[in-house]
């Protein structure tokens, strides 16, 4: 009883705060401060058509590095939690997979992977980028696991892809210090023609590595959850 009263009290205080915040809100009509600088100078400084990409990869590139690190830590902790105990035999899953799913997955998986790669290669021109492309690749891996529950993904491949793309991300960032203005500066290569595929300096390269790394990490998490189903 006391607990219910406390919960109601907490929620009503929060609702009152939200009401106050809402009543003093007015829809913005123009950009101010930092956003105005990013919007008006972003095209000439970074050269990417997608301003969200230019903020994520270049202006706030250090945050992206931290975020990829957090995702890596999460994947490692999950694989530590869901590890099979040594001595446990892996059970073979005898789930019937439907014929439709198996046939469709053979057709769809290459297309899904290709779409993911397209999304992160074109992150500087169209909506999309490394995180979205990586997630699309992970959905392809999920379909693969669904269609064939006893598949064993090659661990070494996932780990090597993840490590190599992470190290290359940092190396390109350090190269920026020597060849251009600072860490993760994309002007180490020529900015190129605005709107071309080969433009915006190092952004397509960095975002491709981010996409590969995110895809490998999410696939690793899915693979761990699938493995945990085999434990008796």
């Amino acid at each position: 009883m006391l607990k219910n009263i406390l919960v109601a009290l907490v929620l009503s205080v929060m609702a009152y705060m939200f009401y106050n915040a809402y009543s003093s809100y007015e829809t913005r009509t123009e950009l101010t401060g930092m956003s105005h600088h990013f919007a008006s100078k972003g095209a000439e400084e970074v050269g990417a058509a997608n301003l969200v990409t230019s903020i994520i990869v270049t202006y706030r590139g250090f945050d992206t590095l931290g975020e990829v690190t957090i995702l890596f830590l999460t994947a490692s902790i999950i694989s530590f939690f869901l590890k099979l105990k040594s001595g446990d035999k892996e059970k073979i899953i005898r789930r019937d997979t439907s014929e439709l799913l198996v046939t469709a997955s053979q057709l769809l998986i290459p297309i899904i992977f290709m779409f993911g790669i397209y999304v992160f290669m074109n992150g500087h021109l169209t909506p999309g980028g490394g995180f979205q492309g990586g997630a699309i690749i992970a959905t392809g891996v999920a379909l693969m696991i669904m269609a064939n529950p006893n598949i064993s993904l090659n661990h070494n491949v996932i780990h090597w892809v993840e490590s190599i793309s992470g190290v290359s991300f940092v190396i390109i960032g350090v190269l920026g210090i020597f060849l251009a203005g600072g860490f993760l500066d994309n002007r180490m290569f020529s900015l190129g023609e605005f709107g071309d595929f080969f433009s915006a300096g190092a952004i397509p390269i960095i975002y491709s590595f981010v996409g590969l790394k995110v895809g490998a990490e999410l696939s690793n998490i899915l693979n761990k959850y699938q493995k945990s189903q085999k434990e008796i």
Binding site: N50, V52, T53, G129, F131, Q132, A135, I136, T139
Partner: peptide, 12 residues
């Protein structure tokens, strides 16, 4: 961009 991420990660 956010819509793509939410659709693939958040709901998938």
């Amino acid at each position: 961009d956010v819509a793509m991420t939410e659709a693939s990660i958040g709901s998938g």
